[in-house]
Amino acid sequence: MIAVIDYNAGNIRSVLYALERIGVEHVLTSDHDVIRAADKVIFPGVGAAESTMKHLNETGLTELIRSLKQPVFGICVGMQLLCSHSEEGDVPCIGVFPERVKRFRPVNGDKVPHMGWNNVKLSANNNWVSKEVDNDFCYYVHSYYVETGADTVATTEYCGVEYAAMLQKDNFYAAQFHPEKSAAVGEQIIRDFLAVDN
């Protein structure tokens, strides 16, 4: 059973539909016991870091997520919240990844939010995403980005910076883009996550 964490973030529905299309059993839940017992956990998200962290702290989800032992996949804001700190609202985050979240500073007429299809360049240390994904396009929507660091397993470039498109450390996996909205490539990445060893 895959648990998708329900925490009032926007656009969780599209992750559920993606799992439905793949045909894997899943549940949308904020129940700590259900999340703890799941084979894998997906932590999706669209929303502002500050208000979302407040909600996660108040409901004990921050502590719970940090303590999970099964594979956890953070998507978009879910990835950013797994980092140590966000410049969006200057707020401490869950802290699974030591990386920090920064705001894009537009250069050369680049528009913010970074919205649309951009490359995913797999790093040499990426041992879980199918190789054919390398350099293909995925769908991004975000105004803040995660700096590259030791946990970076894929990168992309925008506003003149190369930043983390994917992170991985121990049982935590994360993508800045929306695999659930990234056509066949995105579906492959979700399948790759579902196939990682518990």
């Binding site: 529905r13 599209s14 539909y17 993606a18 439905e20 299309r21 769908y139 929507v141 929306h178 659930e180 909205k181 990234s182 056509a183 066949a184 995105g186 579906e187």
Partner: peptide, 8 residues
């Protein structure tokens, strides 16, 4: 649409 399509 959301059920059947995997693009935004």
């Amino acid at each position: 649409i959301a059920r059947h399509l995997n693009i935004p």
